[in-house]
């Protein structure tokens, strides 16, 4: 592993277009600012690993399991009927909408 020492406000450049900068150092915590192209995903390591593991597990499903899962679904979720006829839409408006975009958490280009 490459180890570099940086001071507050200093950064490192990874590849042609990724910059990681030390934004704040307080107690045992370091706050980092990351600039990366939109196609590059940036995650906290433990979150990344957790979701990666879950994605790998999720890829192991088999068709014969589905009916049993559908029967398990809470009543009222549409389980066991309609062949997913309504599942292509965004749905959920009656419950307030499935997605609300919010303004950026981080910097935008």
């Amino acid at each position: 592993m490459l180890i570099l020492t940086r001071k507050l406000g200093e950064g490192i450049v990874i590849g042609p277009d990724i910059v990681v900068r030390v934004v704040e150092v307080k107690g045992g915590q370091v706050k980092l600012g990351i600039e990366a192209p939109r196609n590059t995903s940036v995650h906290r390591e433990e979150i990344f690993r957790r979701i990666h593991e879950e994605n790998v597990r999720a890829a192991a499903g088999t068709p014969d399991q589905l009916d049993q899962v559908v029967r398990t679904l809470r009543p009222g979720t549409g389980g066991g009927n309609s062949g997913g006829s309504n599942s292509g839409g965004s749905g959920g408006e009656t419950r307030g909408g499935p997605l609300r975009g919010r303004k950026p958490r981080g910097g935008t280009p």
Partner: peptide, 27 residues
Amino acid sequence: PEAAFVVADADLFVDAAITAAHDDLLL
């Protein structure tokens, strides 16, 4: 060929609006 995932609409399980990262919406 072997990669397939079982998916469902999120509103089967989430009774709330969710907030997506702006960068992901941009993508």
